[in-house]
Structures are given as C-alpha cells and as structure tokens.
C-alpha cells in the first residue's frame, strides 16, 4: 500500500508536488484551509510574460488528481512529530499520519490599507493589482469606468522598512508591466504612468515585455515613489510623487491608481513554524536548511517546504520547486527505509 505524504497547502505548489509524488508511487493528502484548491492563481486572470490565462494553468493543475486525496476548508489543530514521521490532527478530530511532511502554504498579498498615505479602502479609485485581475477576469467593475489617466505604484509593501518588509516581492514589477499593457489594450486613449524604485525584470522575455510596454503601449515610467494620494472634488485622485531622474516633484490628477501589493508570508506560517520548530527569516518566510543546496528541506528530518512559503516566486519557479521537493521526499524516504530509520 502506498505511503501517505501530507501536503499543507493546495495552491499550485501543493498540487504539482502531489502529482509528482503520486507518480513516484505515494498517496499524497492535500490539506487546504480555503474552500477551493488553486491558491492565488484562482484570483488571477493572465500570467506574465506571454499572457497565458491563469484559468488554463489552474485547470491543468486541478485536473488529473486521481490517486490524490484532498481536503478543503481544513483547520489544522496540531502537528506532532514522532519517530515514524508526522501526525496532523484537524479541528474535526480527524488525524493523518505521514513519514514526511511538505509545507506549501504559500504567501499572502500585503494589505494595501497599511500604506495609509495611498488611500486604499478610503478613496474609491485606489485599487490593488489583485482587484485589477478580478476586473480583467470579470470584465466589469464599479470603479473602472473608461479612465483617461491611470497610475501604477510599484513596491507597495515591498522593500519598505517603514512597514517592516525589506524584501523584494520579485513578481510585482513584471505584473505591473503586464497589467499596464493590458489596460492600454482596453483603454487605448488612456495615459498610463508607472511609479517605480527599480525595475526588476529578471526572467526570460521579461525585458522584452518591458520594452514593448514603452515602445508599443507608451507606458510612462517614472522613477520615484508616490508620497501621498488624495481625492479631488470630482472624485478623481491627486497623486504626489517625485521624479528622481528629473529631480522634480510631480503632482498628477488621475482617474485610477493601481497599487502593486507585494508578497508577505501567509498568516499560518508563523504558527506552523512554532509547532514544527522551523526557523523563520527576518522577512517571516521559512528558513530552509540551506538556501543554495537544500532550499526545499527544513532542519528537521522528514520536513520539506516549497513554493512561496520560503520567499516570493514566480509560478514556473514554484512548480519547479514543487517537483524538486517531491523528488527530495522520495530520496529521503528511500534512504530512511534502507537505513532502517523509519
């Protein structure tokens, strides 16, 4: 009978790891706290750099789950470590045993209302990157009505010590470039500004996407941070910023402001880390055994981690790490059984 492997988190990483483990002959059990599998991918419309539809990727990931047990709306009560592995007990009293445990509990988006000066949750026309994806997916929104001037603010809650997040969220620059181009496609007459600190377009074809944004779509990139946002008498927004290349303060009147919220650790990470005695980095993400040689392995035997729970990652990086973690679990179990540890 195939060994159970418990995976905490049913987003892209957990799903991909489960499939790989199943193909390696195990019986994965996914425990997901949300009502549905798929994680943040479920809320996204298109993915950079090519604009692949998120629902297509989601469909691929959530289909063909034969041989995989999954439970949604799950509330984990306790996790106990024994010589034989891990026992995860849910609030319903149901327990699952597994010789290895894989954490893929992902991330959450920075709550934009914490940057009070940007007015999210105060001014109607301030939205987030996640809100904009919902608009792209649904095609309608109460706030987005033929905007003539649109602003994108990079690094909202990322690289910002004032809110306690020093880390770069890695994916927001590319997302902002993608979303700006999509808005220009929808509203060709709109003028679009993007306020950035640095543009970190590190992946293959990302630079091309950025050049296209400038050359084809005429997105205006302004190197400087937004200092404050307020609402004008007609409901439009007044944005104050600095153009650090021109050494000039700016004051713009715009119709829609999109805040590129960064990636921060999922709420459950801290409590899971406490239960499993995992060290957290200063940024709050799990600290693996070795960031270069063992990025998917924890210090504890039989405990593995993959995806954005160890730091911001793109979808392809997440999926690769999911597969890597599955193979590492397989190798670990083989070695343990041979040596009689388990």
């Amino acid at each position: 009978m195939a060994e159970n492997i418990i995976i905490i988190g049913g987003g892209p990483c957990g799903l991909e790891a489960a499939k790989t483990l199943r193909d390696l002959g195990y019986a994965p059990i996914i425990l997901e706290k949300k009502q549905e599998l798929g994680g943040h991918l479920r809320k996204w419309d298109r993915l950079f750099p090519e604009g692949v539809q998120a629902k297509q990727v989601l469909k691929e990931l959530t289909s063909g789950l034969k041989g995989i047990e999954w439970h949604t709306s799950v509330d984990i009560e306790t996790i106990e470590k024994s010589r034989k592995g891990y026992t995860v007990t849910l609030s319903t009293g149901v327990s699952y045993n597994s010789p290895a445990l894989l954490l893929t509990n992902g991330f959450k988006l920075f709550p934009a209302e914490k940057k009070e000066e940007y007015g999210y949750g105060i001014y109607d026309k301030v939205i987030t990157n996640a809100d904009l994806e919902q608009y792209f997916a649904k095609g309608k929104d109460n706030v987005i009505k033929k905007p003539k001037t649109i602003g994108f603010v990079h690094c909202v809650g990322s690289r910002d010590e004032k809110v306690g997040n020093r880390q770069c969220s890695k994916v927001c620059c590319a997302t902002a470039v993608k979303q700006a181009c999509e808005m220009k496609e929808l509203f060709p007459d709109a003028t679009i500004y993007s306020f950035y600190m640095d543009l970190r377009l590190f992946g293959r074809n990302y630079e091309d996407m950025y050049l296209t944004a400038q050359k084809k779509y005429g997105i205006r990139y302004i190197r400087g941070r937004v200092s404050e946002v307020s609402e004008d008498i007609d409901g439009s927004l007044i944005v104050k910023a600095e153009d650090t290349l021109l050494c000039k303060p700016l004051r713009l009147k715009i119709d829609l402001l999109v805040l590129m919220t960064g990636i921060v650790p999922e709420n459950s990470s801290a409590s899971l880390a406490q239960q499993l005695n995992i060290e957290l980095g200063e940024d709050g993400f799990y600290k693996p055994k070795d960031t270069i040689l063992e990025p998917c392995m924890a210090e504890n035997n039989g405990l593995f981690m993959a995806g954005a729970c160890t730091g911001p990652k793109t979808i392809p990086e997440t999926l690769s790490e999911a597969r890597a973690a599955a193979v590492q679990i397989h190798n670990y179990l083989n070695k343990s059984w041979i040596s009689g540890i388990l």
Partner: peptide, 10 residues
C-alpha cells in the same frame, strides 16, 4: 470616499 475606511483607521 469610503467613510468606513476612515472609521477603521480612526
């Protein structure tokens, strides 16, 4: 203007 947002901050 979303008054509830301000009330939350207050």
């Amino acid at each position: 203007m979303i008054k509830e947002g301000k009330v939350k901050i207050w």
